[in-house]
Design a protein around this nucleic acid. Structure first.
Lengths: 193, 193
DNA sequence: TAGTTTTCTTAATCTACATTATTGTTTTCG
DNA sequence: CGAAAACAATAATGTAGATTAAGAAAACTA
């Protein structure tokens, strides 16, 4: 099992004793997902945080016309969940699926809370990554309000260079909030400038 | 000093012993703001979390044409800060000012971190409110991607009924991402339906 | 390796919302 | 209180980006 990645991920923010690492790892369950397979569907209750070790997942919702709008991409080393549903244990509105064959490590909500209780360091860790995610999401709200589609695409390229050549363009369009046709047009203008 | 409100706010998520309450309160400084007065400007480093006890603040940025885009309204019982700048201690892009005569309680970053260290309960408290804020911001990202202006206005009315009759329309327009003129039009359609 | 499906491009047309301008109303404050 | 400033309503015109349609390229899958 590739636990190095997740321990490194945690190690960026807190120091764990070997026995704390062992305890933590013992709570994880590994799951493989085939491309297009769902980890979570709309109206289900989200019971785990997922850490991606291989492949790439995404979370998205469907609007009233059936169009997908992507909230998050999760390549290796990223966490993903329907936070609303995970916190409230109410049915959520998000789908989470795999964009390619992938592997995740799952930590149940119950174990996560037990961990907070037994070892406050973990509460610190999740406080910090939640703060970082909040900063990124606030930035995105403001970008959606104050930038043109062209500028949002440029920001995406700058911020996630590794995803640009990795994902189908239509997925990027569904993230920045334009149609695939319009993104294609934007990219043409980009090339000629 | 009206510390009841902030202690109640904390009491929603963690229980504090009387001496913990006293310690916490001793770290706060009160500040009054006149309408239009700034708590923070673009390119400044944010050094405090602010809790609103009276009035109403907002955080916003300016786009390249000088238009304001509002990230957050903060009526009494809300926390507000430039989280990016507060975490990184780098110059931020947000303005925070008062929409009316207001009063805030300030907690410095240094004291906040000391508090995390001395009393992990506070880390739990801020973890929880950060999670809640993240959920709200993710919801807003998806709303901006998947709803029409009409629907976003309806959501705002539903979610913040008390602010609707309290704030100038142009502020609400700058929050949902339309011009004041267009919001005026939307409201007319609203009335006739 | 062919056939199916998915993705990308291009172009014509359409629409939600922006811009500009004008007038009226409300709020602020000296 | 009265003048100035901020806010709101309405309407004409403009535009970023959506929709629709169709064909080409790439990527799966049997």
């Amino acid at each position: 099992m590739p636990y190095e990645l997740i321990l490194q991920n945690i190690g960026k923010h807190i120091y764990l004793e070997p026995q704390e690492e062992a305890r933590f790892v013992s709570l994880l369950t590994s799951r493989k997902l085939k491309k297009k397979q769902f980890l979570l569907r709309e109206n289900e209750v989200c019971r785990h945080s997922a850490f991606v070790t291989q492949g790439c997942l995404r979370s998205y919702n469907l609007d009233e016309n059936g169009f997908e709008h992507i909230l998050q991409f999760a390549p290796p080393d990223w966490w993903i969940a329907d936070m609303y549903s995970l916190i409230s244990q109410q049915p959520g509105s998000l789908y989470i699926d795999a964009l390619e064959d992938s592997e995740v490590l799952l930590l149940s909500k119950k174990d996560q809370e037990q961990l907070y209780h037994d070892c406050p360091k973990f509460e610190r860790f999740f406080r910090i990554i939640t703060e970082n995610s909040l900063v990124a999401n606030r930035r995105r709200v403001l970008d959606n309000l104050s930038l043109s589609a062209q500028q949002r695409y440029a920001m995406f390229c700058q911020h996630y260079p590794s995803l640009i050549n990795h994902l189908p363009q239509k997925q990027i369009a569904a993230y920045i909030g334009v149609t695939p046709e319009f993104l294609s047009k934007l990219r043409k203008e980009f090339r000629h400038s």
